[in-house]
């Protein structure tokens, strides 16, 4: 991603009186499970669609609200890449940024408040990293009854 252009856009939102509504991360599944004739992600895993092959990609959406309007800035990044912190402009961003780092393993550079991995207490470290999600789907596939 182009960090400078991104921060410039964020600054523009800040200047125009938008409020940070959320930072949302979704795992991008390269192949829709439906393409494999499976009805659900679990079934997809069971028939070996393995939607998480290849490099893991996350889509990050920074959501801003102003009155009834809602806009997002979206960026797709590969696992292991970093995104810049926006807590310089939006004070509450540190909470979302700590969250995406702890849950998805996305590095955020220059966070306003670094909670040092203490925000979430999880059994699995970085539960939504691609490795962890793949392992979970594999386990589900092993336990699921294969559709006939």
């Amino acid at each position: 991603m182009d960090t400078t252009a991104f921060l410039a856009r964020v600054e523009e939102y800040h200047r125009d009186g938008w409020r940070l509504a959320l930072i949302n991360v979704t795992t991008v599944l390269p192949a829709a499970p439906a393409a494999h004739g499976a009805q659900t992600a679990v079934e997809a895993a069971a028939v070996g669609a393995a939607p998480l092959d290849g490099p893991g990609v996350f889509e990050i959406a920074w959501g801003f609200a102003r009155g009834g309007e809602f806009k997002t800035i979206r960026e797709q990044i590969e696992q292991g890449q970093s995104v810049p912190s926006i807590s310089e402009f939006f004070g509450a961003a540190f909470l979302y940024e700590n969250e995406i780092r702890e849950l998805f393993g996305i590095n955020v550079t220059g966070m306003g408040v670094d909670l040092k991995g203490q925000l979430y207490k999880t059994a699995t470290r970085v539960p939504f990293s691609h490795g962890a999600v793949k392992a979970r789907l594999a386990a589900l596939a092993a336990s699921a009854v294969k559709p006939s």
Binding site: A21, L22, N24, T26, T27, L29, A32, P33, A34, A38, Q39, T40, A41, A61, G63, A65
Partner: peptide, 16 residues
Amino acid sequence: EVVYYVKANGTKNLER
């Protein structure tokens, strides 16, 4: 304010 994000992929189950 609460914000929901829903992503559906054309199956019976939502993706997110």
